[in-house]
C-alpha cells in the first residue's frame, strides 16, 4: 500500500468507524513515523518557478505534552544522500560538494532549543540546524494538528510546520546567481507515542 492510499484508508477508518480517541495527551516521547511524514524544500529557479525537493531517508523523535507544549522538544536526523527532486542527474549534483556534500557531511540535523506558544494550536519552534558542519538557529511556525489514537490503537501526534533558511549562511553558495539563497521548508510530521 503506498503512502497516499494508506493515509486515505486511515482517514476513512477514523472518520467512518469513529475509533479516534479524545484522550488527552500526556508528556511522552514520540518516534517519527517516516511513512506519514515529509520534509519538503522549495528553492527559486532563475525566478521562473520554485523547484521542489524532499528527503527520503530521515527520522527522529520528539517529546510532547499537549497541556504544556512549551516544554516540547524535537531532534531530526536527515541523510543528505537521500535528497530527491525527481531528477536523477540533478540529485547527483545536489549530493556533490557543490551543494550537500553528502560524502563529507552525510547528515543534516535539527535540534530544538525553544518553543513559544503563539495561539491555541500554534507556536514557534526554534532550533539549531547543522548543515555542512555549520550550526545556525532556525525558527519554524508550527501548527499542532491532533493527538489521538489512530484506527490501529497507536497514540499519534501530528504537526505541520513551515519556515525558511538561507543556504549561504551554511556555506552552500554554488550557483547563488541562478538558484535562490532562501530555502522554504514545509514539514509534516506524525509521531507514534513510545
Amino acid at each position: 500500500m503506498n503512502k497516499t492510499t494508506s493515509t486515505i484508508v486511515a482517514l476513512a477508518l477514523s472518520a467512518g468507524i469513529g475509533l479516534t480517541s479524545a484522550m488527552p495527551a500526556n508528556a511522552a516521547t514520540f518516534e517519527i513515523d517516516p511513512t506519514h511524514s515529509n520534509i519538503v524544500f522549495l528553492v527559486d529557479h532563475l525566478g521562473y518557478s520554485r523547484m521542489v525537493g524532499q528527503f527520503q531517508d530521515w527520522g527522529g523523535s520528539f517529546d510532547f505534552d499537549e497541556t504544556k507544549p512549551e516544554t516540547s522538544s524535537i531532534q531530526l536526523i536527515i541523510k543528505t544522500e537521500s535528497v530527491d527532486t525527481d531528477h536523477a542527474k540533478r540529485d547527483d549534483h545536489l549530493r556533490s560538494p557543490d551543494f550537500f556534500n553528502a560524502v563529507e557531511f552525510p547528515e543534516l540535523t535539527f535540534k530544538s532549543t525553544a518553543v513559544k506558544v503563539t495561539g491555541k494550536n500554534t507556536g514557534e519552534l526554534t532550533g539549531d540546524v547543522t548543515l555542512l558542519g555549520v550550526t545556525k538557529p532556525v525558527t519554524l511556525d508550527v501548527t499542532f494538528n491532533k493527538a489521538a489514537n489512530n484506527p490501529w490503537g497507536q497514540f499519534v501526534a501530528g504537526f505541520s510546520a513551515t519556515g525558511s533558511l538561507k543556504r549561504s549562511e551554511f556555506g552552500m553558495t554554488t550557483m547563488l546567481g541562478g538558484l535562490g539563497d532562501k530555502i522554504d521548508l514545509i514539514i509534516e510530521v506524525e509521531g507514534e507515542r513510545q
Binding site: 560538494p97 556534500n101 549561504s168 553558495t173 554554488t174 547563488l176
Partner: peptide, 15 residues
Amino acid sequence: AYDRLPSFPPRGSTN
C-alpha cells in the same frame, strides 16, 4: 566561483 571566503578552519574538501 563559490561566492565566499571559506570558513576557517575549513569545513569540507572544497574549503
